[in-house]
């Protein structure tokens, strides 16, 4: 079973390393958004204060997510129809690669991720320690999580250990960092939420070193209301296993 090491440079309560400006300009932050007009503007402003290249993939939103994102200064790619978070992430990754990104970070649009965690994701890639950083809330910290959600996430970790044979502590964390080389080897085909499990399989098989980084997740009333329902877990398992069976 593949086992990853947590990033020893960053402890859960420690100060993350800062990135030089030249590196920050080479980072593309991908934010998939679906009906996130209420929160995405503030998220973009917070990220853009440090990282100039923010790409929002508006996944066929019915609200003003795209307009809000553009006003906040993000590059906006619009899916004409809703295709799911996995599809939106791959769109953003493809675009970032085409634009010459050296480092790619995936970031949620509902405000649950912290900009302060980005250097911790990029630092091990920059130093050649590994090519893929996977954020882990269980190595870092998590605020206001519902016990049922925590239980489901733990089940997801167990599922990944059994089915994917990868020993990580947080499977469904959207905060990740990729080197350009790694991003080019990732091809998410599961359009909806099952992409997180597919991604772990691809990370395992891509032949590049990877590791976990402690990150902090802050659940707000907004993000909890927007989050998936627990029953969605069954759909995720079905889509993931079906994909594995049929190729």
């Amino acid at each position: 079973m593949a086992q990853v090491q947590p990033n020893a440079n960053v402890s859960s309560g420690g100060v993350p390393p800062s990135l030089p400006e030249s590196v920050r300009e080479e980072v593309f932050v991908i934010i998939p958004a679906y009906n996130e007009g209420e929160a995405v503007g503030a998220v973009i402003e917070e990220v853009r204060a440090i990282y100039p290249n923010v790409v929002v993939v508006d996944d066929g939103s019915k609200d003003h997510s795209a307009d809000v994102s553009a006003k906040a200064g993000a590059l906006v790619l619009r899916h004409a129809i809703n295709r799911g978070q996995g599809a939106a992430l791959q769109t953003g990754i493809d675009f970032a690669i085409e634009q010459g990104a050296k480092y790619i970070v995936t970031f949620d649009s509902d405000g649950q991720h912290r900009v302060e965690d980005i250097p911790a994701l990029i630092d091990p890639i920059l130093n050649g320690r590994w090519d893929i950083s996977l954020g882990s809330r269980f190595l870092g910290g998590v605020e206001n999580i519902k016990p049922s959600r925590k239980f489901l996430l733990r089940l997801g970790v167990l599922f990944t250990r059994i089915v994917s044979r990868v020993r990580i502590t947080d499977t469904h964390n959207g905060l990740r960092g990729f080197s350009r080389k790694a991003a080019k080897r990732i091809h998410i085909t599961l359009d909806r939420m099952a992409h997180a499990s597919e991604l772990i399989d691809q990370v395992r098989d891509c032949g590049l070193p990877y590791g976990e980084v402690p990150v902090h997740i802050r659940y707000t009333d907004y993000s909890k209301a927007k989050g998936q329902r627990s029953t969605g877990a069954f759909k995720i398992v079905f889509h993931y296993l079906f994909k594995r069976m049929t190729g």
Partner: peptide, 13 residues
């Protein structure tokens, strides 16, 4: 198809 259209048409407000 949706992805290709999105990537080829990044727009501002």
């Amino acid at each position: 198809l949706v992805r290709r259209i999105a990537i080829e048409n990044p727009v501002h407000l």
